[in-house]
Design a protein around this nucleic acid. Sequence first.
DNA 1: TAGATTGTTAATCGATTAACAATC
DNA 2: TAGATTGTTAATCGATTAACAATC
Lengths: 228, 228
Amino acid sequence: MRWGVDVDGRRAGSGRGAQVPPATVARLPRYLRALEAVAAEGGVLTSSDELAARVGVTPAQLRKDLSFLGSYGVRGVGYDVAHLREQVRAALGLADERRVVLVGVGNLGHALANYAGIPERGFALVALVDADPRVVGTTVAGLVVQPADRLADVVAETGATIAVLTTPASVAQDVCDRLVAAGVVGVLTFAPAALRVPPHVDVRAVDVASELQILAFHEARRAAAGEA
Amino acid sequence: MRWGVDVDGRRAGSGRGAQVPPATVARLPRYLRALEAVAAEGGVLTSSDELAARVGVTPAQLRKDLSFLGSYGVRGVGYDVAHLREQVRAALGLADERRVVLVGVGNLGHALANYAGIPERGFALVALVDADPRVVGTTVAGLVVQPADRLADVVAETGATIAVLTTPASVAQDVCDRLVAAGVVGVLTFAPAALRVPPHVDVRAVDVASELQILAFHEARRAAAGEA
DNA sequence: TAGATTGTTAATCGATTAACAATC
DNA sequence: TAGATTGTTAATCGATTAACAATC
C-alpha cells in the first residue's frame, strides 16, 4: 500500500467555488469568527475593511478569499453579516454537524474534550477512547471513556469522521491507521510525530514544542541583529 | 501607537544564513525531531532521503531548507546526525534555554504546563499566572500559580521572553498587551482571538476549532465530489 | 574509477498585493 | 449624481520542484 503524506485530492468538482486555495481555506475559520463577533455586537452590515481589521489581514486579501466562495457582497454597500456568515459556514461544511472522536484522554485530551470551542462551532464530540484501564469507564465531558480495543466499533457506531489524536507519539501512527481503517477521513493530531495517511485522509498537526521553537528562532534572530 | 499584525522585521542581518524563509523556519522543528529520532536509534550518518521520508517532505525540499542554514552535508556521503542536529538546534536559538511564562491555568493551561514536550525541547517553564483566586497559590507542574496583577513582576523577575496564552478569548488582548509591555517578544496563544502586537513581537496562534473546521471543509469537498 | 548524494540553479507553481473598473 | 465598496485583473513576490553539476 503506497501511502503519500496527504496533499493531492484535487478532484475537479465543477460549479460554485470549485477549487478554493489551501491558504484561503485556512483563513475561512477566522473570517467566520470575525463575522460571528460582528453579529454578536449587533452588526447587520459590514465591509472588507472592518472584517480585515478584525482578522488581521488586508482588505484586498479578504475580498479575494471570499471571491472564491462566490459573490456575496454588494458593491458600494458591503456584506450582509448574517448572509455572509451562513455562506462561510456552508463553505466550511458546517451546515450539518460533524462527529468527532477523541483518542487519548490524558491531560491534554481531557482539556480538549471540555474545550468550549469544539461543541459550539459545528462539532459534536461523540466518543472518547483510551488505552489506560484506569481511565476507561470514567466519564469525561459527559461521555464514558471506551477501551482502545473498541476503537473501530466506536467509530462505526457513532459515525465519527473526524478524530482528535492526543495519544503519546509512540502509538500515534498505529492509532491513526486504525482510525483510518474504521472510516475516519480527518485527523487533528497533537502528537509530535509525522503521520502517514492515504490520500483521501486529511491530517492537521499541532505541535506545541514546534511552535515554541519557531518563536525561539525569531527571538534569536532579533537578538543577533540587535547586538550586531 | 501604530501596531501592525506582526510580519515585517526583515532586519538585514549579515553573514551566515541571514534570511531563512518563513516556510523553512516552520519546518526546522520537524527536521530536528527527525534527527533526534535517528540519533536515538543509534544512527550516525543519514541522508536527505531518510530524513525527508521521516518528516514527510521531498528530499529536494529538505536539502534546500538545510542549505539556508549552511552547508552541513558531505556530497556522496550524507549528513552527520549529531553535527546536523546541533546546527539545527543552534539555528533555532535553542543553544541557550528559553524561559516561558504561561498565563491562564485552566484545563488547557494545566495540561500544557505538564506537557512533556516543553521542558525537554529547549524551554523552561518559569512561571504560571492566573486571575482566578481559587487557582492562585496552588502548585502546578512544580510552580506556584501567581495572581494576574503580578504578571509584569513575574516576567521581570524570571526574565521570561516567551509566553503561552491559555486565557479566555475575552481577556487575551489585554493580557497580551501587558506581557508585551513587560518584555515578552514571543506569544503562543490558544485563545480564539486575533492578537494585535507591535512589529518586534511574534505571535503564533493555535485554534483547535479552526483546525477542525479546516478538516470539515475538506471532508465536505470530498463528499460533494463523491456524490457528483 | 564508479556510485552516491549533496548544494544549487532554473523553471514552475501558488499566494499576495495593488490598482481599478464595475456597480450600488 | 457623488461617494463608497466590491470583485477581478495584472503584477509581484515567495515557495516548491526537478534536474544536475559538484564532489566525496
